[in-house]
Amino acid sequence: MLRYFRQILSRTKWFATTFAAGLLLCSAQSLAADASRGEALFKACSQCHEVGAQAKNKVGPHLDGVFGRKAGSIEGFKYSSAMKRAGDGGLVWSVDAIDAYIHKPRTFIKGNRMSYRGMEDDQDRADLVAWLEQISLTKPSANANVPSTNAVVGFATAVLEIEGDPDYGAYLSGECVTCHQITGKADGIPSIVGLPRDYFVRSLFEYKTNIRQNEVMKTRVINLADEEIAALAAYFSSLTPQ
């Protein structure tokens, strides 16, 4: 009974949110979209998402066929429970919904784990979504959940060959979860729960080698030995977001 009520409630909430978002979007909708700019704008997403023929899941789910797809519904991808709840509550991806989501990812679905700040510019979003609408008509890879292995560069590959000790990783993770929430929520600091192992390892190396600049990450990673990175990767990739 209670469950039934909650469902109704969340459905109504979804209706209200999407409706409100729809209203806010009127201005965006009236912009003439230029899909030719979309590919360049997708650089903001491609670190995490693939789209187009043979797309695979990476940090985020592949976006093939995303229009008309229920939110949080790709089999085998580790969605946050917030995203799955949104889908069960009736959220289906449309031009408007994707526009609203990438405008303010944190507020559109509270507690989701997409670590993306948001795209401010109305025209940019309109152009990107228009391009996405065309490109996403392609078919994803048949085994979209098998991670691609060529994502790691140079010395980082050595770490991937080390089998990390998840117990050690669990202890070391204590240091990380003061900032990165163990539930996988992205609230101003990216979610690292359930990141693919290769992506995880590569990003730590990118802080170590100054490809990525962030002082809090750099100081932490400088002290991590390969075994420690491997242990952390083993531990965090074994977790399921909540």
């Binding site: 979860v177 900032c179 929430q181 609230d187 101003g188 600091i189």
Partner: peptide, 14 residues
Amino acid sequence: FEESEGWYKGITAD
């Protein structure tokens, strides 16, 4: 500053 807000949520959850 945004990082510090994220940290506040993180440490209080921890």
